[in-house]
Simulated assay, not measured.
Amino acid sequence: MTVNVMFSAPPRLWPVYKPLLENYLDEMGIDVDLKTGFSPDVVDYVVYAPSGLRDFTPFTRLKAVLSLWAGVESIADNTTLTVPLARMVDHGLTQGMTEWVVGHVLRYHLGIDAHIHGLKGEWRQDVPPLASERAVTILGLGALGQAAAVALAALGFRVTGWSRSARDVPGVTCLHGGDGLKTALNSAEIVVLLLPSTPATENTLNAETLALLPRGARIINPGRGPLIDDTALLAALDSGHVGHATLDVFRTEPLPASHPYWTHPNVTVTPHIASETRPVTAAKVICENIRRGEAGEPFLHLVDRGLGY
């Protein structure tokens, strides 16, 4: 029986994913009809990235929606979607995020900015501490947070991880809950945000929680823009309580040219490039979930609709 898969994602992705999905499904022995448009009542699976599709009511045969993105905040609360929703967890995306996070943590740890932008003609030998003397806190211990935490711990950093629910990550001090967040921030010289964007995580870093950080702490946010109260962060940067922030994600993207982050001397802006879904590996994850659905096996990476991730 032919499986009907509708690709509902930005048009630029279609020529990239179409041959990959068809080839992988063919290798799995699955006869597939893959299109960007079907009569909704014959669609078995929707491969999804935000692209205009919002009403899933007509999709009466739908078995699952398979997201190309790790973040699903744009669809998780959609009341017309009653079938399983799977988010993207794939090796390429995880590896890319790990490399970006490790790179920027090392940049702060080694004081690289000072040598790139300053010290002209000044022979100032500020030797950085060893990684074992540097405290790094990861907020969020999902797939991306765990991978970054493990990589940093392998380099010798003293890594603390915080999540809303209890986790156990080898080599990482794991904390959770409100008191755990306070403890995680109290000693953090570098903070990395890798939480999902949900109503419960919005403004995780605000005036109150930023005040818990040691003076001069650095912040790295490749997670989601709403995790930070922008006004509170700018005030903490202006006062010197936060020494520097590297921000890859924002509430409005592209970041408006008038936004103060662009010109603040203690902010580095990167244009949402920390990690990207890699089609070659992501397509394999999508196809594996289609195979599982057709075999009656549990889907991978299902979203808890109550939690929003």
Rank of each mutant, 00 (worst) to 15 (best):
residue 236 A to G: 07
residue 129 P to H: 08
residue 17 Y to H: 09
residue 26 D to F: 01
residue 170 P to N: 06
residue 139 L to H: 02
residue 186 N to L: 01
residue 181 L to P: 02
residue 229 D to A: 06
residue 289 N to H: 10
residue 289 N to W: 11
residue 300 L to K: 14
residue 136 V to D: 07
residue 267 V to A: 05
residue 296 G to N: 07
residue 117 H to W: 12
residue 82 T to H: 04
residue 70 A to G: 15
residue 135 A to F: 01
residue 22 E to L: 08
residue 227 L to A: 15
residue 6 M to L: 14
residue 295 A to K: 14
residue 167 R to V: 00
residue 226 P to E: 05
residue 72 V to Y: 07
residue 200 A to I: 06
residue 43 V to K: 01
residue 228 I to E: 11
residue 261 Y to Q: 05
residue 291 R to V: 05
residue 95 Q to F: 02
residue 131 A to Y: 06
residue 108 Y to V: 06
residue 100 W to T: 14
residue 67 S to D: 09
residue 74 S to R: 11
residue 293 G to K: 01
residue 202 E to R: 15
residue 261 Y to T: 09
residue 250 F to Y: 13
residue 182 K to G: 15
residue 249 V to S: 03
residue 290 I to P: 08
residue 41 D to Y: 10
residue 14 W to A: 10
residue 146 Q to A: 14
residue 306 G to I: 09
residue 238 D to N: 13
residue 40 P to A: 10
residue 66 L to A: 13
residue 36 T to M: 15
residue 242 V to D: 03
residue 12 R to D: 12
residue 241 H to I: 04
residue 279 P to Y: 00
residue 156 G to W: 05
residue 163 S to H: 03
residue 132 S to R: 14
residue 105 V to C: 10
residue 74 S to K: 05
residue 7 F to H: 03
residue 151 A to S: 09
residue 28 M to P: 03
residue 163 S to Y: 01
residue 267 V to I: 15
residue 253 E to C: 07
residue 248 D to G: 13
residue 88 M to R: 02
residue 197 S to Y: 06
residue 39 S to Q: 08
residue 239 S to G: 09
residue 122 E to S: 06
residue 14 W to Y: 10
residue 284 K to L: 14
residue 301 H to M: 02
residue 237 L to Y: 13
residue 131 A to K: 03
residue 36 T to A: 13
residue 63 K to T: 14
residue 297 E to T: 09
residue 178 G to L: 04
residue 148 A to K: 08
residue 63 K to C: 13
residue 297 E to M: 13
residue 227 L to Y: 04
